[in-house]
Amino acid sequence: MTTASFLDPPGPRGRRRQQVATVVTAVAVVAVTVIAVRRLADQGQLDSDRWDIFAQRSVWIFYLRGFARTLQAGAVGGVLSLTLGLGLAFGRLARGRPVRWAATAYIEAFRAVPLVLLMFFAFLGLPRLGLDLGPFWSVVIGLTGYNSAVFAEIFRAGILALPAGQTEAADAIGLRYWQSMRFVVVPQALRAMVPAIASQLVVLLKDTSLGALVSYEELLRRAQITGEFARSPLQALAVAALFFAVVIFGLNHLARRLERHRPTPVATADIPAETLLATGAAGAVGAAAPVQAPG
């Protein structure tokens, strides 16, 4: 992490000013924290009886089982999204017009609507069409509907970013279309897109929490239930939030370590900026070409 290169290095007076500013900021941060904590304490939110449900092992087990369900829906949704996404990417790059149009229409539509809407549709609408699959599959369908479209765009970007010489060479040695895809194009494209894929999988896991809205008892829903039961909604939520934050922070860091020093694709409306920004490929996001690392 460096400061902007367009700042002049500070002289003695500048350094002085920086020290003063640091102290002022520190005081401000401490003051805000103290006020917030005191207000919470005044309202009795920090009293031990608000928290003592967490002294019970059964509550933690309830949470952990909820988190296992978060992972379950995330894993099934992730596998389905990746598979369907690869199919859609091939479809969008296909030579046949009907296939290409169908895949394009799906991708453009499903990445443009809120994931909650897809979940609600699966939960409220599908039973009317004779397909009552329950909360788990409603969550999975919602996750897959949106994320398959996003993964398709990630795969397509990876395939298109490959130098044309690769497919030309595959053609030249006589590989057929699918052979060239299977042995030349896809392996390289996938490797280049690993950071984006990993980061989108983390986004998918985060979105699993939306299952709480369709009564899927994952971690967040279970926190709500615990909060109502123990009459301390804030405390129950805070514990769940900490849980989410720690796990996803860790996963984001893992995803970032996958980042190799490759040019990242242009962040346009095709691939959500969040995906690319979270890979920490920050320096290259939005650049049309690889940029020399500063310094």
Partner: peptide
Amino acid sequence: FSLPLLVWALLFFFGLPK
């Protein structure tokens, strides 16, 4: 980047009045 939006929304909803 680590907090799901819905978790943040509910935390805000229950926390700020407090």
